[in-house]
Design a protein around this nucleic acid. Structure first.
Lengths: 173, 173
DNA sequence: CTACCAGTTCATTTTCTCTTGAACTAGATT
DNA sequence: AATCTAGTTCAAGAGAAAATGAACTGGTAG
């Protein structure tokens, strides 16, 4: 009979819907900046603004998005390490909370974007080097350019872990 | 009379077209990863692979893209600080070279993306804090979340300049 | 003055990404 | 067995971003 399973908010809690909408909006935009679909940002924003963990169903109901979007959005958030799921025993649905570590959040996105670039590099750069090698008159020029790519790659590779600790709690001085 | 103004390549230079196509392809993909349109990456890639600076007309001809794309693409590259233009006197067209400093390249993109987020934050966070303040029962929770946003913001703000020097030549140890 | 060349602007079209909704799986509940 | 609830999958639709192409500006050469 518990028809409305949407988490009950205390009656005095007048600001909650406003606060929530504001967060949803904010993270929706922030997500886009990081190249993540807005609906994914919305979900994170909703979780961020919620004192209680929310279930799949809650999310669909509160954001008014389709089950499909919610499902895919949650998958992406999982794969980015941006949410934590816990399953209340005696209840079969999962409840989600936002990951609060900036390092994990940004790290998740960077891993999904920069890492492939840095990782896929070597074979590609090798290929370029081979092409440069029979570059005729401008051979030196081409080899320089390939060198430059190598340099960039290694600098990015170096920068990532530093960024990582830099975004971590406290220790970065 | 000079009908074919496309920069002449030495006859022995057999690998050049291959090398060029490879670079165009590579930077096209890299651009997408950074949220920049592929055509813009292509232009940069073409310049990157060219021993001589290229003109607007060269770019259109070699990439086979429309004048519109080329014009807009060059504007974006300019605004990102990703190219340098020089105007050979006695010739009214501009010739473009790729910017080779990783710091400037990445910096340009980051400034266009992260900076707005960090900059637009304060007003927004203030608004959220006000909402949190009349948050009823969960007021403490909401204020915590707002605090967290502040913390994130300041850490990002701190990280940007560090990243900047980190991508610069040598000095980053 | 006319024609041309280099480049810009912007409305239209194309392309791609995101979202939706319907069909489906699987574990409870009656 | 039949129905419900929770969630997934994926083809198709809607929307946003990018590319095109035609009309335009302004400078130069004949």
């Amino acid at each position: 009979m518990p028809v409305a399973s949407l988490t009950q908010t205390a009656p005095s809690d007048v600001a909650a819907p406003e606060f929530s909408r504001e967060c949803v909006e904010f993270f929706s935009e922030a997500a886009q900046i990081f190249g993540v679909p807005p609906s994914v940002g919305q979900i994170y924003g909703l979780l961020y603004a919620s004192p209680q963990p929310l279930s799949f169903t809650d999310i669909v109901a509160r954001l008014g998005i389709s089950k499909g979007s919610a499902s895919q959005g949650l998958q992406m958030l999982r794969s980015l390490g941006a949410i934590n799921a816990a399953t209340h025993d005696d209840d079969r649905r999962e409840y989600f909370e936002p990951e609060m570590s900036l390092r994990k959040l940004v790290g998740g996105v960077l891993n999904g974007r920069i890492t492939p670039l840095v990782a896929a590099g070597p074979e590609r750069i090798e290929r370029l080097r081979r092409l440069a090698d029979d570059g005729g008159a401008a051979k030196d020029f081409y080899l320089d350019r390939v060198e430059q790519l190598e340099t960039w790659r290694s600098r990015l590779k170096l920068a990532l872990p530093v960024l990582n600790t830099l975004l971590g709690p406290k220790r970065g001085r």
